[in-house]
């Protein structure tokens, strides 16, 4: 008995230690960035654009604007496609006798799963080849958003599918039994019930856009000016951090930008938690 208790205590002791170490590492990373970055942050830092050059004076105004643009435009492309596909996959295809449709669905599912595992730079290269060069859209928010949409569509499809699957089958049966057709059931009962889950997926995707660099490196250009149209190039905050660190001597500014970025990501995650907690509470 004692021996068994001893081995149990040992095991849980080790896990406890592992947990503590992980938390410490994370705290250290975030703490380090905050300590190094926060002193450089002022109101001016948010309201002025970077001026370029090796010292890269100025703030991060234009990158905030670009990031915001990127989020909105990418989601405009990706959300209808992703949600639509997910609805087709869960609400329609799984209930059909049609062989062709069934085959298509299994291919689509496989594709979605594969795409979700492809490194983002591959999407970048694809975007560069297709949107920037072949379609002649140049380094622009439009090109980058289209490439970004390709990256996040699998995420939206997956999360939306999960959200739809989490809607109890009883809702669908109840609605169908009252004489609703499948579309009425989806629109009036299933989607409202899955709304929070779908929102979570969209927020997750937005987070992905904020944190992604590689894909935008080869599609967005890197202009530090404030974008004035969809055809303007630009740099997101994450990209800005990369440029500052690798191509200028303004390492302190890279840290400050990183601190803002980390804060933004934390806020977005809190938002996701709030949304999901509300679902759990229901």
């Amino acid at each position: 008995m004692n021996k068994r208790n001893f081995s149990q205590n040992m095991a849980f002791g080790m896990f406890w230690l592992a947990g503590i170490v992980s938390v410490l590492i994370m705290a250290f990373v975030v703490g380090y960035i905050m300590v190094k970055g926060l002193p450089g942050i002022s109101l001016d830092f948010f309201t002025t654009s970077p001026r370029g050059g090796l010292s890269c004076d100025g703030g991060i105004y234009s990158t905030i604007v670009t990031t915001f643009y990127m989020i909105v435009v990418t989601l405009v492309f990706a959300t209808p496609l992703g949600v639509g596909t997910a609805i087709y996959l869960t609400e329609y295809s799984s209930n059909t006798d049609n062989r062709v449709a069934g085959r298509m669905v299994s291919i689509a599912r496989f594709g979605v799963d594969t795409l979700a595992g492809v490194p983002s730079i591959i999407f970048g290269l694809f975007g560069y080849a297709l949107f920037v060069t072949a379609m002649n859209l140049g380094f622009s928010i439009l090109s980058a958003s289209l490439a970004g949409a390709c990256l996040i569509i699998p995420v939206i499809i997956r999360t939306t599918e999960e959200a739809l699957k989490a809607v109890p089958a009883g809702y669908r049966e109840g609605s169908l039994a009252l004489g609703a057709n499948r579309w009425e059931t989806t629109w009036k009962v299933v989607l409202p019930a899955a709304l929070r889950g779908i929102s979570t997926g969209i927020l997750l995707s937005a987070g992905r856009i904020v944190s992604e660099t590689a894909i935008f490196f080869v599609t967005l250009g890197g202009s530090y000016r404030v974008p004035h149209s969809l055809m303007s190039g630009g740099r997101t905050m994450a990209l800005h951090v990369y440029y500052l660190a690798m191509e200028t001597r303004a390492f302190d500014k890279a840290m400050s930008t990183a601190a803002v970025l980390v804060a933004l990501i934390i806020i977005m995650n809190l938002a996701i938690n709030m949304v999901t907690n509300k679902i759990a509470a229901k």
Binding site: E173, P192, A193
Partner: peptide
């Protein structure tokens, strides 16, 4: 048909 023949299920399933 389903308007004329209603159904009540095993688990209560009111819509949210």
């Amino acid at each position: 048909l389903r308007k004329k023949v209603g159904m009540v299920f095993q688990r209560p399933n009111p819509f949210p």
